[in-house]
């Protein structure tokens, strides 16, 4: 009884450590530093960044170029490891992982959407969407079914055999979104998702993001466009490698 009391009073930070404990916190960053060695000088791209993202959130990360926003995105996406600090994603401590373990986390937990779509040019829409499932080791039959379903959910069910160069920009981005979602990741991580699209298509894609959010997906959008960020429910502003502002807008 005493011990329990002690715990509750003595350590207020315990709840914030609770990626594993709460079950609702998907992303938890603690005092993250990312430092690049430029000759003899040290360049701090991120300085002591801490924040959490709950399941079902729609978060935008904004900031001017050079603010450290891309570095933060690479860390969230497990493409890179922090120099210092702890990063938990869905109960996994990824800050200490090896390259291959990071690859497995990217495959299971992260769905990337890139500015330039990053589809394989030689492959059909279907094969592009299948890729994460291939690396997850799924059998061909099941994989095909899931990829078809994912493409149908972004209204491209009739374009499965088309190659990227036979699709419009908006369609390509929707293929990329289908690919990001096909393995049911914890987070949809989008990097300037409308940066290469015209304004009308941008609106469509942002509407799709809202629909996906409404269906329960956790979305993180990295952008420098304020009207894209304004669609999110929470905005994290990065400046000089630190969190300048963290505000809920909805």
């Amino acid at each position: 009884m005493y011990r329990f009391m002690e715990n509750e009073n003595g350590e207020p930070g315990a709840t914030s450590n609770g990626a594993q404990s709460s079950g609702k916190t998907l992303i938890s960053m603690h005092n993250i530093w990312k430092t690049y060695q430029m000759g003899v000088e040290e360049l701090h791209a991120l300085r002591d960044v801490s924040f959490q993202v709950e399941k079902g959130e729609y978060l935008a990360i904004i900031g001017p170029s050079g603010s450290g926003k891309s570095t933060l995105m690479n860390l969230i996406g497990c493409l890179d490891s922090p120099t210092k600090g702890e990063y938990w994603i869905n109960g996994n401590l990824v800050s200490d992982m090896t390259d291959d373990e990071l690859a497995r986390i990217r495959n299971k937990e992260i769905g990337f959407v890139f500015q330039t779509f990053n589809l394989l040019a030689r492959a059909t829409a279907l094969h592009n969407v299948e890729l994460p499932l291939i690396y997850a080791g799924m059998r061909a039959g099941e994989r095909n079914e899931k990829a078809q379903a994912a493409l149908a959910s972004v209204e491209l069910g009739d374009r499965v055999t088309h190659k990227p160069n036979e699709l419009s920009g908006g369609q390509r981005q929707r293929v990329a979104i289908a690919r990001a979602l096909v393995n049911h990741p914890s987070i949809l991580l989008a990097d300037e998702p409308t940066g290469a699209l015209d304004s009308k298509t941008s609106v469509e894609i942002m509407a799709l993001f809202e629909k996906l959010h409404a269906e329960g997906n956790t979305i993180i959008v990295v952008t420098h466009e304020h009207d894209v960020a304004a669609r999110a429910h929470r905005i994290l502003t990065i400046r000089d490698g630190q969190i300048e502002k963290d505000e809920k807008i909805r």
Binding site: A103, N118, P132, Y135
Partner: peptide
């Protein structure tokens, strides 16, 4: 190189 980057971002390990 870019294809390799894409594959890695989607979960390809070094061995793959």
């Amino acid at each position: 190189t870019r294809e390799i980057g894409i594959r890695k971002s989607l979960g390809a390990r070094e061995a793959d």
